[in-house]
Amino acid sequence: MAEEVSSQMNSLSISETNPSSSATISLVSGDDIVFKVEPTIAKEMETVQSFIDETDGKITTIPLPNISSHDLPYVIEYCEKSIAGKITKEFEAEFVKKLNNEEVKELFLAANYLNIKKLLDFLSQVIADRIANKSVEYVRRYFGIENDFTPEEEAKLREELAWTFTGVDPDDEDEN
């Protein structure tokens, strides 16, 4: 296992950091890929920072089992921009263009897990935009929410709200 991780690191060379520098923080994704980041990046991630603080900075390798190596680079990219004060509308528009619905949801959960307020707020808006003007069924499918209203309950609520405008967008099956 040790060799596997090490070889992955070599082949990926995720960031150019000096191996002797003890200041960098290693974030380990759920699929065991190590991402070396500057401590300033870790500060953006409250969950990571509090872990570091609790151990008086002695532990600099943080396992993030809930976050995949596919999603983590996006999170790091956003945090880097945030520290540099370069979160612009243009950056956000470009950033979100790269993400399909599944990725948006995964990143949202990652941001929640890592407790990155700015990213969470941004992704909340992205998700709101993506479910805006969609049908109830579409929203359920989007979130994978099981409808646990009983048929009677739902019929009653729908009847109660039957007068409301029903001109939603046609459901969009394309997940991108």
Partner: peptide, 18 residues
């Protein structure tokens, strides 16, 4: 997330999801 939807969207869709 829901607070970012328009009022029409909350009334016609979000509140009926679950």
């Amino acid at each position: 997330i829901l607070e970012r939807l328009s009022t029409v969207e909350i009334v016609t869709s979000a509140c009926l999801v679950c």
